[in-house]
């Protein structure tokens, strides 16, 4: 799934073919029905939940002219709807969403102010 997005993000000809026929552009990639649906709609929240790296997903969202704040909200909605990220870099230490990360940050405590 990420391979498809990697190819799409960097290849303008591929982007044209995808825009002309999204489902057809998916041919040749090893994708489940869920993944094909997420990529063709596109369902940004589901893609993030499945485990697409944000750096890949961000470019894909920009390609679809999704505004930045909408992009962030779509990912949050995806976590709400589907649960924590299944696999990938965000699942390595458990990406449960914004609130859990905020809570973790508050546990770090006060660090000494470094002079810069």
């Amino acid at each position: 799934m990420q391979k498809f997005l990697f190819e799409l993000n960097r290849d303008e000809d591929f982007q044209s073919r995808y825009l002309a026929d999204r489902r057809a552009a998916l041919a040749g990639f090893d994708l489940s029905d869920e993944e094909q649906r997420a990529l063709s709609e596109p369902d940004i929240g589901l893609l993030f939940h499945i485990g697409v790296n944000g750096q890949i997903l961000m470019h894909f969202a920009a390609f679809h002219s999704i505004e930045w704040q909408d992009y962030l909200q779509l990912m949050r909605d995806g976590l709400d709807a589907h649960g924590p990220v299944r696999e990938g870099v965000y699942a390595v230490t458990g990406y449960e969403g914004v609130e859990s990360h905020s809570a973790r940050l508050t546990q770090i405590g006060e660090l000494e102010e470094g002079d810069i």
Partner: peptide
């Protein structure tokens, strides 16, 4: 930073300043 994720915009300034102090 938490780029391109739902946490985008979160910044741990204390962590940053400590690292930059070490870097400098």
């Amino acid at each position: 930073h938490w780029p391109a994720t739902p946490d985008s915009g979160k910044i741990n300034e204390e962590w940053d300043r400590r690292f930059l102090d070490e870097w400098s």
